[in-house]
């Protein structure tokens, strides 16, 4: 019997913005990867960086909670790869209530291997490699079967998944503490996909583009401490549907890296 991604326990993330930074530190993160497709920004209406005020701190404190309350989203992610000068793009869906997700993978990077699609739960990563399709069908698996393996934070793709799933929290952050974060700042007002946004920095390595009308996060930018591995996550659409997970198979020993 094929194992299923659904059968594995879910660990609900309960952190706030600070834990997000931990995830970011593990992985990498952002600034300046110009972007995800469909991105349309206008010239910023203000440019000078300013001290974060309480209004914006209160909005920022809720941003990951609002993601959690939205349940899930369709998103696009663009990132610098870890072991090369290449780039990685993920396009798909995430559900923050059960931490499931599924994406198409593209880019130019040694980190990709032959992976063209991924799905995940909180504990397992599933990968689809077209080159193995015939092999898997030959041993009885149905077409489109993903190979599953435990989450491995040393892999760039898994780190990127960790960032996406970390963009939600069951609790709000504390605006009082955000106000005194080193690096917290209001960067500018801008427009993203026809929405008016405030671009605010939580810390030196995490920037949120927040819809000024709804308080929802439309974009997250992060980077590691070196700034060499930026990531940009664009929220394209909110959705609460469960993620449709693919058929899966254990990774045959012969295929393990």
């Amino acid at each position: 019997m094929n194992p299923t991604l659904r059968a594995h326990p879910v660990h609900r993330r309960s952190g706030v913005l600070a834990p997000l930074i931990t995830v970011a530190a593990l992985a990498m993160l952002p600034v300046g990867l110009g972007a995800c497709s469909g991105d349309e920004t206008t010239a910023p209406t203000t440019v000078a960086e300013q001290r974060l005020d309480r209004r914006r701190a209160e909005v920022m404190a809720q941003v990951l909670l609002r993601n959690h309350e939205a349940t899930g989203a369709r998103f696009q992610l663009a990132a610098r790869s870890f072991d090369s000068e290449g780039t990685i793009s993920l396009s798909g869906v995430v559900n923050w209530s059960d931490l499931h997700g599924r994406v198409l993978v593209s880019g130019v990077s040694d980190d990709l291997g032959e992976v063209t699609e991924m799905a995940w739960t909180s504990q397992l990563i599933g990968e689809y490699r077209p080159g193995l399709e015939a092999v898997l069908q030959g041993i009885g698996h149905q077409p489109g079967t993903y190979l599953i393996r435990p989450v491995d934070q040393s892999r760039r793709l898994d780190q990127l998944v960790g960032i996406v799933t970390g963009l939600a929290s069951t609790t709000a952050d504390n605006p009082q503490l955000i106000l005194q974060n080193p690096g917290a700042a209001y960067l500018r007002s801008d427009t993203l996909r026809d929405r008016s946004v405030d671009v605010v920095r939580y810390s030196e390595r995490s920037i949120f583009w927040i819809d000024t009308e709804t308080g929802m996060m439309l974009r997250f930018e992060g980077s590691d401490s070196s700034g060499r591995f930026p990531v940009v996550v664009d929220i394209i659409e909110w959705q609460s549907d469960p993620v449709e997970l693919p058929p899966v198979a254990e990774v045959p020993e012969a295929l393990r890296r």
């Binding site: 309480r54 404190a61 809720q62 709000a172 009082q176 106000l179 005194q180």
Partner: peptide, 14 residues
């Protein structure tokens, strides 16, 4: 969503 009653020195300073 945040607090029932908040006395904030940070807000007062602002």
């Amino acid at each position: 969503r945040q607090n029932g009653l908040l006395f904030s020195g940070a807000y007062a300073a602002e």
